[in-house]
């Protein structure tokens, strides 16, 4: 049972990913699709932070602790940090596309957006 708990946080990341994917696969509304994609992206944060976590590790900010002290992994945190802001702008871009799709087709349901127009 102990070994299960040791990989449990990683499985949560996979679960969040599947939740978002399920939302995209069954989506009836483009805005809903975009939010589901954001949920999928959140799973990468959970995975990254869990991979770099260290029990009793300090935050990797060397104010008040010695350089070389045991800290959680700063590399994955750096990866995540840039990702959060970029995700926000990418979501904005996709919502703009949804606005345009609505202007063109008059609907936001992916099932009704079948026609291709030049």
């Amino acid at each position: 049972m102990n070994s299960f708990l040791e990989i449990y946080p990683y499985l949560i990341a996979g679960w969040i990913f599947l939740c978002g994917l399920y939302g995209i696969a069954t989506s009836k509304h483009l805005v809903h699709t975009v939010v589901c994609l954001a949920v999928m992206q959140t799973s990468t944060y959970v995975l990254l932070l869990n991979v770099g976590y260290r029990i009793h590790g300090a935050a990797p900010v060397f104010v008040g602790i010695k350089p070389g002290a045991v800290t959680v992994d700063p590399v994955v945190q750096a990866l995540m940090l840039t990702d959060v802001v970029v995700e926000a702008t990418v979501v904005a871009l996709m919502l703009a596309m949804a606005v345009k799709a609505h202007d063109r087709a008059g609907t936001l349901s992916p099932d009704d957006l079948r026609m291709m127009r030049g």
Binding site: Y53, R54, I55, G68, T71, D73, P74
Partner: peptide, 14 residues
């Protein structure tokens, strides 16, 4: 296992 990060890269930068 969770909580036992091994990688040398982050530690080196720390």
């Amino acid at each position: 296992p969770w909580g036992h990060y091994r990688g040398p890269y982050g530690d080196l930068i720390s």
